[in-house]
Each structure stands twice: as structure tokens, then as C-alpha cells.
Design a protein around this nucleic acid. Structure first.
Lengths: 352, 352
DNA sequence: TTGATTTATTGGAACGTTCCATTTATAGGC
DNA sequence: GCCTATAAATGGAACGTTCCAATAAATCAA
């Protein structure tokens, strides 16, 4: 069915009547080979159906051209965008990145990382899974393989990070809500084992503080970072004695969930309860009502991460500067003004 | 910064006071090694920070444990699901699949395939990019590397295919619309260079024919398989003299686009114009109105594809049976009955 | 022509593993 | 104790490439 054994450069050499070294040179595009010899070899390569054995080559060369991309949740379009951005720049550098999914599972991540290392990757771009232990990258660091974190970071790690300005994004979003007259605010979704969570929550808190929303008028509801999580966050919030009138959600998925739950209760997102998302996935624009969200340009961050990686490989270093990407609030229809502040006396304990 | 040179089994051997062969045996989990020797070696492995060089190993073993997964559009959650399904089964087989994205670009696909082959993959699961030339997989076939197509197929290729029953899915969907009283039907989106397109369109046509919708009451609008495509399809359709009252869309993205365009015109999807999607992505359920769609169980198909691949590798064959996955129509809210058939005399040319 | 230069080509030794054929150690039977 | 059978450990060759040093061929200056 298939050709007996895999063809090697020796087979090509025999076919073309040259030495293996010459074939190797042709394969590497060395200019020192006579054009006619080159084409003779090229033809032989075609004829024998040769496929280059990069494993064997790397044995000598000691630096491969493969880069691993480890992503915690491929089904989240947000991360898929990140991957696409990276691919764009690697492609133009003649590198094929291999993507692997960890499904937010640290054990799986360990396997994936190990496998990638064994494959001899030149570098690793990682969006670490939730619950990644601090030591998970020690081996890789001591092996001298450059790593950059994308979107997420690990607490106290020296690995460079490419991420959006979560603090500022959350600040902008919360300020927007407060500007619309809301005085009882909630933060929905996410959990405290994620550094991002603290960053976003921090921005939210800072906005509340500087813009005069008292700490006791803030409701924090942790939850899954999915639609389901958003639904249950909203349920919890509305069950309170004095429920919030607006929520900043950890990400868009949570926001969609919250809006869904509002509808189920006969409330209109935007008019009856303001919702802001985070990430600004494509879907946000097309939702009903269109979701106000913090845009982070994930594809751009992906590109950035790829560039940083390329530079690290080139200068054979394992260190690089962090890069915090700009964010901006995209205002759409999901957050109108607080109704209640108009219809009834300001809630007890409200300041302004 | 990092340890000088990469550690090899020789370093481990020296450290543990055994021979390289013994180390190799331990690495492969051979039972013929005395337990205490094993643990001595294990310790040395830890100490020197060894990382296994799979490339070198494959040089001798001649069959790797890596499988490539080539996907045409990672940003489509549908394909991401497929990937996730595959990963599930490969994981339990101790295999780490590498995913690569072709972004629907045949040239890129060529590069990706080449790179994967050079890496010495044991097998390839591919959802071919649109416009893939028939010869694109010849090299791979002659190299004897097993390939299976997932979701999409190439015209006249002997490569096994794992795909949903597109014909039946489209038939069911069209029949549903006709059952609701619609007599002027459209098929939105997709283009004829995709085999899937013909399958779905075929099912649609067959339903129309057997259930009494005349060919002249059918409108086919080709278009991009995205929201944008859906929007323009709807525009075209409503610009007709006698516009359709319902549409089966090539996929859910197109359906979302169509619904969006309806809203923009002040029409209510479902009530004023019926829309059915295809693929049943998670989003379909949460849309407003919830989208009636043909569920194809992409994760399940991914699992199936992975199993077939595993079996092919195991039995060192390059052939396998096709597998057509069951589909079912999930009825939600996006297609009410045809209003017009009630409010005005049956349109000219309508049969029943 | 001849020797010096440059340009093309080549053989051999590595790279880090596996696997086979041996050797060495351990245990068993008498 | 000795011989045999089994278990444990080992050295060497191979896998397909690259790279260096060396050779062979072509070009040039005199």
C-alpha cells in the first residue's frame, strides 16, 4: 500500500547520484549548491516521496521550530480568538504553533506540558488552567525553555505576562454604572483562585470607593465563569433584602447568563437591571439587548504574546517585560439608568 | 540560568551508577528491573532535571504517539466542540493531540499538514479547509499515515469520513417548516464548493419535493457561513417579488445573522419569518428567540473520529468505514406557522 | 603551466534514544 | 558445593539528520 520503508536522505542521494551531505544542504536551502544539482535533488525528493524527519534533525540542531500553545478553554471563543491572533504572527515567521487544550484541568495541563516539552518545543505560550500550582512551570524554567503567560498569570511567578488591563477595565465599567445612577452594585462570577479575578474585582472596588458607593452597598457573588454561573449569581443577588440594581460580570458568558435569568423573571436587562460584561466577545454585539462590555482585543494580545515569544527565542533569554493591553468600554444597550432611584426615595444608606 | 546542556540518559546513568540501557528500561516501565534500581534511577531523573527526548526515541521506535488535529475554523464553537470530543478519548489513551488551525485557507492547510508530517505524527484527523484540492492528501496517503476526515469530506476521496447525517438533518428541518404551513421556502448560506452544502441542500430539496412544495417556490441563496452571510441572505430574500416565509440556514451562524436582519427590519423571527439553523451550537438555546436547529452532537462525532483513528493506528491500516452520525431536530421558538397563508389567499402557485 | 583561491561536494562523527545479544548476578535443585 | 535456570543489567549498533573538516573541481593571476 505505502512505500516499503520511509525514504531518507540516503535514498534521495542514491536516486540523484550525489552524497547525503549534498541532499542535506539542498534541504536547508544552502546557496552553495550548483543550481542544476539542486534541481536534480529536488526531483529525486519528489520521486521517492520523501518526508523530512524533523525529529532526527533536531537531534543535531538542538532547536526546533515548533511552539506550543496551551489553552485552558478552547470552547470559549475568547481564547480561540487569542489563538488565532498568535497564529497570524507565527505563520509569517514560518512557524507552526501546536495548540493543546487543558480544559481548565491542572492535571491535564501537566500532561500537555510534559508532552510538549518532550517534543522539544522552542517555546510555550500558556493560558494557565485554574488551580495551577506554583511549581508547575519550574521544570520548564530550569530546562531554559521560554514561556509566556497569556491572559492569565500565576501569583508570584517570574514568567512574563501578556494580559489586558483588568483593573482599569473593571474600573471603567463600574464607573459607567455609577454614572448611570446606580448605587447598589454587584460583581458577578469568577472565583478567588484566579489572579484575574482579584484584578477585576479590585478595579470594581476602586471605582465604587472613589465614586462614593459605600462598601455595604456592594455585593460580591462568586460563581462559575459561564452562563450557568451568571444565572445563579443573579438568583442569589435578587434574593437579597436590598438587591443591587446593576452588575459588572466577570466575563461575557456570566453576563449572558445573568441577562437570561432576568428575562426568565420577566425583567428586562438594561431597563430593569443593568448588566456589563467583560471581554467583548463577538456575540456581545449581537445579543438582545446588545451587551455593554469591556473590550480587550484578544487577537491583538495573542499577536503581542507571539511577538514577545519570538524575541525571547531569538535572544535566547527566558525573561521579558510584561505587557498590559489597553481596554475600552463598549457601551451598548444592556445598562440603562437606575429606575428605582427615580421612582422611590433613595434606598436607605445611599450616599448621593 | 538553566542547566548547561540538556541532560540525557547518560547523565542519569552516571548519577544513578547504572548503565544507559537500564535507564532506558526504567523510562519505558519495563518490569525486568529491580524495584530498588528503579527508584534509584527515578531519583536521578528528578535530580538532573531530565526531559525525555521523544524525537530521538522515535528515530528508533518509528512510531510516535502524537496525533494531529487539523481544523478549519477554531473560532467556530462547533469545531471547538469537535476538538474537545476528540481530546477526551485521546487523553484516556495517553495520547496528546496537537491541534492546528487552517483558518479555512488551503495554503495554510498545506503548511500545517507538512509540518505535522515532519513531526512524525501517528495519524491525522482533519476537517478540510474549503477549496482543498483533491491531491492535497496524496503525499500523506502514500506515506501510509492514517487520516480521517471529520465533519467535512472531499469529493471522491477514499479517506474515511466521520460526519453527521446532513441530508436527513436538512430533510427534517424542511419538513418541520412545511408542517408549520410554510409554502415558500429558502435555503440560506453556504457555497457549492463544500460537499456538506450539497448534502444539506439535497435533504432540503427532497423534503420540498416529497411534501409538495414546487421547485419555483424554493429560493436558494448562497453566502458566507457566518452571521454576516446570514444577514445578506435575508436581505436578498426579502427583496424578491414573492419572498419566502421561512428559511433553513446552512448553519447556526447564518441563522443568527438572518434573525438579526429580521429584527433590524422590525420583523419578529419566528412569528413573521421562520428560521431554522443547523449544528445546534450551545448559543442556539440561549438566543432570543431560541433557535430551532438540527443537533449533530459534534463532541460525539469527535469521539467517534478519535476511536476510528485509534483503531486504524492499532491495526496499521489506512482504510476504515465511514460513520454517519445521527441528527435530530431540536424545536424551539424560532419558527412559528406561516402567517400569510392564514391572512390572505394562498400565494399564487401554492399547491396545498 | 603552476600555484593560489574560490566554489562544490563529500565522508565521518555526533545527537539521544531503543533494542538485541551478551554478560553478570541471583536463585533453585540436587 | 556445583550446575542449571532465571533474573537483572549492560555494551554496541542502529535510527535520520547536521555540521565540520577535508577533498575535488573550477577559476584566476601570474
Amino acid at each position: 500500500m505505502a512505500s516499503r520503508a520511509k525514504a531518507t536522505i540516503f535514498d534521495i542521494a542514491r536516486e540523484a547520484g550525489v552524497s547525503k551531505s549534498t541532499v542535506s544542504l539542498v534541504l536547508q536551502g544552502s546557496g552553495r549548491i550548483r543550481p542544476e544539482t539542486t534541481s536534480k535533488v529536488r526531483k529525486a525528493i519528489e520521486d521517492v516521496g520523501y518526508v523530512y524527519n524533523r525529529g532526527a534533525a533536531n537531534l543535531r540542531k538542538a532547536h526546533s521550530n515548533v511552539i506550543g500553545m496551551v489553552i485552558n478553554d478552547l470552547t470559549n471563543p475568547f481564547f480561540a480568538e487569542l489563538a488565532v491572533g498568535m497564529e497570524r504572527v507565527f505563520q509569517s515567521a514560518g512557524i507552526v504553533p501546536f495548540i493543546a487544550n487543558t480544559a481548565e484541568n491542572p492535571v491535564r495541563q501537566e500532561e500537555v506540558l510534559k508532552s510538549l516539552m518532550e517534543q522539544g518545543v522552542a517555546g510555550l505560550i500558556v493560558s494557565p488552567a485554574r488551580g495551577t500550582t506554583p511549581g508547575a512551570f519550574r521544570r520548564i524554567e530550569t530546562a531554559g525553555v521560554p514561556v509566556v503567560f497569556a491572559m492569565r498569570r500565576l501569583p508570584e511567578s517570574r514568567i512574563p505576562v501578556i494580559a489586558p488591563d483588568n483593573h482599569r477595565g473593571a474600573y471603567l465599567a463600574a464607573a459607567h454604572l455609577i454614572g448611570k445612577g446606580h448605587r447598589r452594585l454587584a460583581f458577578f462570577g469568577g472565583s478567588s483562585d484566579l489572579v484575574v479575578y482579584h484584578e477585576r474585582l479590585g478595579g470594581f472596588r476602586e471605582a465604587c470607593e472613589t465614586l462614593g458607593v459605600a462598601a455595604r452597598d456592594i455585593l460580591i457573588v462568586e460563581g462559575e465563569t459561564s452562563r450557568k454561573g451568571g444565572i445563579s449569581c443573579l438568583e442569589t443577588a435578587l434574593a437579597m433584602a436590598e438587591p443591587p440594581t446593576a452588575a459588572l460580570c466577570f466575563n461575557d458568558a456570566v453576563a449572558f447568563g445573568a441577562m437570561l435569568a432576568l428575562r426568565k423573571r420577566g425583567l428586562e436587562p438594561g431597563a430593569d437591571f443593568a448588566v456589563v460584561g467583560f471581554d467583548d466577545v463577538v456575540e456581545a454585539e449581537h445579543y438582545m439587548p446588545a451587551l455593554t462590555s469591556v473590550a480587550v482585543d484578544s487577537a491583538g494580545l495573542g499577536e503581542r504574546a507571539a511577538h514577545v515569544m519570538l524575541k525571547m527565542i531569538q535572544s535566547r533569554t527566558t525573561r521579558a517585560e510584561d505587557h498590559i493591553g489597553a481596554v475600552n468600554l463598549v457601551v451598548r444597550e444592556s445598562c440603562g439608568p437606575d429606575r428605582r432611584t427615580r421612582n422611590r426615595p433613595a434606598g436607605s444608606g445611599n450616599t448621593a
